[in-house]
């Protein structure tokens, strides 16, 4: 397969949400000695960009978006060790730690935000649901996160968002990390009241907020 053909097939594997195909193509790129960064930027990223655009036009839908994200993830998982070996790093917009607030077991919205962020060039560390505040603080320190996002789907667990901001302050990390909050009961007013830096109405808008917080244009 010619290089350009291979890149096209990579984009297609993401658009079609075929994670196994995406991983196979990534391996073939490695075997062919193609720069893994180039494989990502010219192969897989155009695919995820296409899906993102179609999604915002309402011509592709959440299941396609999620599967495209999974395919992207599978490809990057193959290519990342190669990049490490070569001593290169993919240019990322920033590292985001995601968690659902303590006591909150709602996963779908937060995972969507994660998928969208990683598809848009962020490194995402998703801690899952019902995550204690301390665990989030530790992870933020460990990965030197640029952004931490906490979701809460219940009015009772929303308080965990405020607790996290307080804890980040006590740990002396508040100046280094931006805090994004989201979830059905969360309002911009609440975000302001607890001193969060950003609020995204849904996954697509969360990406825009995250880009703004790390100073990426557009």
């Amino acid at each position: 397969m010619e290089r350009e053909e291979l890149f096209e097939a990579m984009a297609r594997s993401v658009i079609e949400g075929e994670d196994e195909t995406a991983a196979d193509l990534a391996r073939r790129a490695v075997e062919a000695g193609i720069d893994p960064l180039e494989a990502i930027d010219r192969g897989f990223v155009p695919g995820i960009d296409h899906v993102g655009q179609e999604f915002s036009r309402e011509t592709m839908f959440l299941p396609e978006l999620v599967l495209a994200g999974e395919a992207m993830k599978a490809a990057v998982a193959v290519l990342e060790p190669e990049m490490t070996r070569a001593g290169v790093a993919r240019e990322i917009h920033g590292t985001v730690v995601l968690a659902a607030a303590p006591g909150d077991i709602h996963d779908i919205g937060k995972s969507l935000v994660g998928t969208m962020l990683s598809a848009s060039g962020f490194r995402v560390v998703d801690l899952g649901v019902d995550v204690p505040v301390d665990a989030v603080v530790d992870k933020v320190r460990e990965v030197n996160a640029d952004i931490v996002g906490v979701s809460a789907l219940l009015t009772t667990t929303m308080l965990g968002q405020r607790d996290l901001i307080t804890a980040l302050g006590s740990a002396g990390l508040r100046g280094n990390v931006k805090v994004m909050v989201g979830g059905a009961p969360v309002t911009p007013e609440w975000a302001e009241e607890i001193g969060a830096d950003g609020f995204g109405e849904d996954a697509a808008r969360a990406v825009a907020v995250a880009r703004r917080l790390v100073g990426v244009e557009g």
Binding site: G17, L62, P63, L67, H106, D107, I108, L112
Partner: peptide
């Protein structure tokens, strides 16, 4: 896990 969104069946059948 509420991960039905990640299922191929979801993509194929939702429409």
């Amino acid at each position: 896990k509420g991960e039905f969104l990640k299922q191929r069946a979801t993509k194929e059948l939702f429409a």
